[in-house]
Design a protein around this nucleic acid. Structure first.
Lengths: 403, 403
DNA sequence: AGGATAAAGTTCGAGGTGCGAACAAATTCG
DNA sequence: CGAATTTGTTCGCACCTCGAACTTTATCCT
């Protein structure tokens, strides 16, 4: 049971009823399509007449469309309803330190087109170029309407103003991306932290069992981010900064982290950690410790490639990273007990090696009553980008803001 | 934005509108009482006529009552509305390993009476005795109606059946407390884990700034429990077992925990930990390590008493506990970034000593963007017991289950 | 004293919404 | 060809909020 937020509520009117039931209908169609009005009546518990009325309106508003007629052993054949995927489009933007990916998607989270550009160091320049690219992309893929622009980025937004307040890897500061883009393009813009976007992606378009309402996404790159869905809703915390489990101290005497502390989880288990482990093993092998110039700092991708070739040093570095990754995941499983925990990042390419080590660490360390499934995401599925789409679609498919 | 739970939703009808607005009104009265209809109109945004209609019904249902007339510089004087605290009572039961406390409370979370009994080892016997005590207490404090019985206990319930599935300190197993009590007394029973109950207590009757929607309660006794409120709602996780941060590994080579792992947070920072630190310091002082018989295992309460007398050994043990407590709290602050984190337990009696050490650890270890206030609870305020009341009152004051 | 002003609270018809029964349409089976 | 069955529509009813008009109560100013 939720407490009513007296600082941010909506009273109910007659139309509220229709809004609630429409959203339920829309979700039922999304889940069961193709589906007849009679089926919707059974799924929802609404009266046949009510279902017909709502369907009529949703068809008029072009959210739904009628399709083929079904087949039954007896009686009148049902007319199927579908989501009208042509109705609207959504623009998704995934900003990463080096590359920014943008895409347009239809209502069913299918990408219609996708392209990349470099992420500029100068925010002004970047916004101008991104705006142009988005407009071009929308012009090339005309839709009945565009609903909005979702943006994922490695940083933190102020929860009220949505201004960017922290994005060390991008090198921007205090940027009001939202307002600028909204003015340039004329569509609502929604920003979200990358890990949170991944969590949303899994919630709305993940291939999980139906009814997953507690889900954690762990993004592993040069840092570690955690996005949490609890009770079917993204957890942003008081200032929008929840999920910084990457900066939980795991080894007080461990290596220095760029956050200023030492031995943070992300210092021990991120891609950069594997890179460091690999480099360290080089100098150890040579019998010299600390002669930094000797350390061969291979990019993480190369380490993964070496692992595929069964290179012993690379495997050892990866194992070390995996063990620490598992330790942190055990913390999340123990403390949050989600139904599903998904891992996002290049490291999933070696999941056949990493997965068992993580599973072992979790089994060893975590409290036994949780039954969290730990799953790698397919990098092809572009979780960040899918999350930006979910971010916008939420507004139509999510629960109405009431009470 | 919340995702609609298609496995557990309610469609809206005309009455839903009234239900939503009634609950909003009830909460507004709770927050602002005494308050006039005209004020409620302004707070809620509803029409004057609607406010009057809802008030009329709530008065008829005895949720509200009219009180004194107010005073204004001009115009007709307003009639104030209050919560009708006499309307209903709630029974709260706080089961702890040695003692069970039971109380009856009015709608405003004020205790009318409170008494204790010993917690039996035999569950059947216990249920019988508890039922009798509850019935006696209700008879001694007659109310218009009793709304339900809330129970807090140190253990875990199955989230669907509410059967007790894990309560090592009580020594009961697989107990269906809910059904038995409901049959004996004829009131709905709600069970909740003690840490969760404390979190609910702070959410509903805590003395915090208004609008705290992300809150963590840490209960420190012989174990450590964590209750989480995120987005204004209790986080129970997939199987109702979320919050076991007490069993997150902090020192892999640390002392054995009764959960089977080693170096869990609760092994390092619970009351028992302080007791152990104290005992260890004894044997160290004597120059012998490991001769267990020499270790003086003082109860935690005695250690606190010694601390009040500035006993050096006791202070050292408490400091050690406090440092570890702070380390774990830093993890929660970093990862969950709640508005408020409350600490519950005997340790708060020495908060003038413990608080600064915790604050220091949090400052040192946690990510800097969170602005969590860390507060001790007053043991006199009986957070567990208040939580059981909140557990029941939620059903009337919480957001309606819709969509 | 009496009228203007002001604010609280009530009354009542209009419009939106779901309910539920009756009805129409479409299809199969004997 | 009619009975049975299932889908989908129509229509009057009840519930709810809205919003304007109205009543009630009180103060201030002339």
């Amino acid at each position: 049971m939720r407490k009513i937020d007296l600082n941010n509520f909506q009273v109910a009117t007659s139309e509220t009823v229709r809004d609630i039931n429409s959203r339920i209908m829309l979700n039922l169609v999304r889940k069961h399509q193709p589906v007849s009005r009679a089926d919707l009546m059974r799924y929802s518990g609404l009266q046949r007449s009510t279902v017909s009325a709502i369907a009529e309106r949703l068809i008029a508003e072009r959210w739904l469309k009628e399709g083929a007629v079904g087949d039954l052993p007896r009686g009148r054949k049902p007319t199927f309803l579908h989501l009208n995927t042509e109705r609207c489009g959504v623009v998704g933007v995934d900003i990463q330190p080096a590359t920014t990916t943008l895409a347009v998607s239809s209502m069913d989270s299918q990408f219609l087109a996708q392209e990349s550009m470099s992420t500029e160091k100068d925010p002004g320049e970047f916004i101008a170029r991104l705006s142009r690219r988005i407009k071009d992309l929308m012009r090339a893929h005309p839709r009945n309407s565009y609903e909005g622009i979702g943006i994922s980025l490695p940083g933190r937004m102020d929860s009220s103003s949505q201004r960017l307040i922290f994005a060390p890897t991008l090198g921007w500061s205090e940027l009001d991306l939202k307002t600028h883009l909204e003015r340039n393009i004329g569509l609502p813009v929604e920003l979200e932290n990358a890990a949170n976007a991944c969590a949303l992606a899994e919630l709305w378009s993940g291939r999980h069992l139906d009814g997953v309402r507690n889900l954690v996404a762990v993004t592993v790159s040069d840092d570690i981010g955690v996005g949490m869905i609890m009770n079917g809703q993204l957890v942003r915390g008081s200032t929008g900064v929840a999920g910084e489990f990457g900066h939980v101290t795991q080894e007080p005497d461990g290596p220095k982290c760029r956050c200023g502390n030492s031995g943070c989880w992300e210092v021990l288990a991120s891609n950069s950690a594997a890179v460091r482990y690999y480099a360290e093993s080089a100098s150890v092998r040579k019998g010299e410790v600390g002669s930094k110039s000797d350390m061969t700092k291979l990019p993480f991708g190369d380490i993964l490639r070496l692992v595929e070739q069964n290179d012993a040093r690379a495997c050892k570095a990866l194992n070390q990273m995996a063990r620490h990754l598992g330790d942190g995941i055990a913390m999340l499983v123990t403390g949050l007990a989600p139904d599903v925990l998904v891992v996002v990042g290049e490291v999933t390419r070696a999941w056949d090696k990493v997965g068992p080590i993580v599973a072992e660490a979790v089994k060893r360390r975590s409290f036994t009553h949780a039954v969290t499934r730990i799953l790698p995401t397919d990098p092809e599925a572009q979780p960040r980008l899918r999350g930006t789409i979910a971010l916008v679609l939420q507004n139509h498919f999510g629960a109405p803001l009431i009470a």
